[in-house]
Nucleic acid binder design. Structure first.
Lengths: 375, 375
DNA sequence: GCCCCTTATGGTAGCGCTACCATTATCTTA
DNA sequence: TAAGATAATGGTAGCGCTACCATAAGGGGC
């Protein structure tokens, strides 16, 4: 550009009346993007591009930058990033009175991921889905990029509608009845229930009791359907007496177990839709002088801490809640980033694999105790 | 490069030498400190002073500023704050395999407070205190202002020494044996145990069993001491058979309960040092055909989710874990702020009040000692 | 050859706040 | 009363990064 301009600038840069030069305010000498740029012999801008995975960078340059980053052990300053980026990623975590073991996993997953991508987590408990609405409004005042909704909130249409109205995206953790989330992470509850039921059948059981979860939650239906499907596939007749309603709580499991165990021809195995209810089944069995698993097999679902706390430890289906929440946080980040550029309503979905965890609460039916039944 | 090009540009835009004026990058029109300053008719600097509670601001001015903040519904931009402040508050949360119910409360407390003061939480699990050391080193690479240490980490001198070496402060959540933390939050475990024991005595029990917690943790000692003190104060003889060792786990509670319940003259009440062990006592009692609380009173400690999950619900001591962790986060913030200015090694301590929660697992001893058998 | 278009890169101006100094009014104290 | 100390406030330059534009360097298509 014009040399004249430069000359002028130079003359003013003698600082006739401005403040005296100050020392840099940087206290800890953490490398900045400029240091990397110098090392990689390019501009800070190019470094920024590499870091953010943008296109339009020559492969050669990219590698140089990555090398420099490695060498300097550089990590970008989160504060500067979100300040310059103009947008702060705030994520609302809402939950409706879940079990402690669920919650701790849920929070850990969110926390780990949020820490990585520098998102702010706003945690809110609400007793009912209706109570969630004002909380969401309040959170939204400060600007919220998205909400993470575990069941039963993701089964509630009003909650989702409000999220949309507030311009936030909603990610369901677990299956949801309500339509219109911008994404969801879940395991295949149906297949998992099929597998577990098949496992129990494989042990030789034929009278298998089932305790259904909370009726409002879609996961309950799916798990039940899995049980039915596996029974049918094994050619076993389904005795409706053996299928009882629960509500995912320990208390409800107690009642359901009482019902199943007092049946004239009681089941030799019980598959509960979650671990809390399975624990309740074991407690009830013990109170009725039944040994687990000798007299009765008990299996759970979720693999919460409960499953490995109680004795005997539960055979259950592991649902990787931590990974699921982490994924949800990442999804919100992706979505709100993409929103800034293109406005297409992408929907992110992920089915995370589950695992069948075999522990000590299952066994083949004992010949002596078990009422013999038709093959 | 050419002046030609520039000349052209000059003709198209009024700006002679600089780039053309850009639109502000601010997307959401959240009020900034400058807006507040304008409204309060002072400089942004003064507003900053008011916000940060610094001195040297006239009361009159302060009020004007606060009014303006209120009117504009201003809230400071966290990113800008930590960028300009030069220091990022990073807090390491370490825990050693705690129960899920403890953890969820622990995390919630930390999360809520951290969100308020814009601290970054780094969560790490470690199986043993020794395993914590490398994790701490690693966390420290990115710069850590402080660590929050629940038991048993706060009982480990090596952990504390390392924290000091890394230039981070350490806050114990719960009593710790190791010396040298920069602060601690806890309840008065001794007094709480005294109260609970006195409560049980007040119901009419005289043979009261006690299950000790993990021996390495100071809380265990304190609770035991409380039990002894209350027994002594009531003039009750302490039968050493009635005091058995546990390790805070459900499993250890099972063994301890078995021991206590198979005593020739078994206790009419058992006070376990935490809820998990108390739950194990109840399970064992049930397996031995004893009703709770009719045949035996069982009390716990901590009031974790377990306490109100099981049946009957536990009478226990509520330890407000959430508040405690929140306090710890705030303490780290205070300390590292004060460190920047004066370097005095302030130690922050807080004793948070506990509550005795009476639920359904306690009752007066039944008059006939053992014979009551159920059908 | 010219023009345009794409791709790779650089320069600069903020993002909103606070540290640091400068400045002015308000007292003290020699 | 002048000189200094103190209190209250203002101005400015970053903090480290990214958005936005500008520029330069390579292709085709006419």
């Amino acid at each position: 550009m014009g040399s004249a301009v430069y000359a002028m600038q130079m003359s003013t840069s003698v600082q006739p009346k401005t403040h005296k030069r100050r020392a840099s305010r940087r206290s800890n000498a953490a490398p900045t993007i400029a240091d990397v740029a110098r090392a990689a012999q390019c501009s800070p801008m190019t470094v920024s591009r590499v870091i953010n995975g943008e296109g339009n960078v020559r492969e050669e340059t990219r590698i140089q930058v990555l090398d420099a980053i490695e060498k300097l052990n550089y990590s970008p300053n989160r504060a500067a990033r979100s300040l310059a980026g103009g947008e702060q990623l705030r994520i609302g975590l809402l939950f409706d009175n879940p079990s402690a073991s669920y919650l701790s996993e849920f929070l850990r997953g969110a926390l780990e991921e949020a820490s990585k991508i520098d998102a702010h987590l706003e945690v809110q408990t609400c007793e009912t889905p209706e109570a969630a609405l004002p909380l969401m409004r309040k959170l939204s005042e400060g600007g919220i990029s998205g909400f993470i909704l575990p069941p039963p909130l993701c089964d509630d249409q009003d909650v989702l509608d409000l999220a949309k109205e507030l311009g936030a995206c909603a990610i369901a953790v677990g299956p949801g009845k309500a339509m219109g989330t911008q994404g969801s992470v879940m395991i295949d509850d149906f297949e998992a229930a099929v597998d577990m039921t098949a496992h129990i059948i494989g042990l030789g059981h034929t009278r298998i009791g089932f305790i259904i979860g909370k009726p409002e939650q879609l996961a309950s239906e799916r798990r039940l359907a899995g049980y039915y499907a596996a029974m049918k596939q094994a050619g076993l007749e389904i005795d409706e007496e053996l299928v009882v309603q629960g509500r995912f709580t320990y208390r409800s499991g107690l009642a359901a177990a009482e019902k199943l165990l007092s049946l004239p021809e009681r089941p030799t195995a019980i598959f509960a839709s979650n671990d809390d209810m399975a624990a309740a089944v074991i407690a009830t069995a013990h109170r009725n002088h039944l040994d687990v698993p000798t007299d009765i097999t008990v299996c759970g679902f979720d693999d919460t801490a409960m499953a490995s706390t109680i004795w005997p430890e539960l055979t259950t289906v592991r649902q990787p809640i931590r990974e699921m929440t982490a994924w949800a946080v990442a999804a919100i980040a992706r979505i709100s980033r993409s929103r800034r550029t293109d406005d297409k309503g992408t929907v992110e979905k992920s089915i995370i694999p589950y695992t069948l965890i075999r522990r000590d609460s299952d066994a083949a039916p004992s010949l002596a105790r078990s009422p013999r039944t038709e093959p």
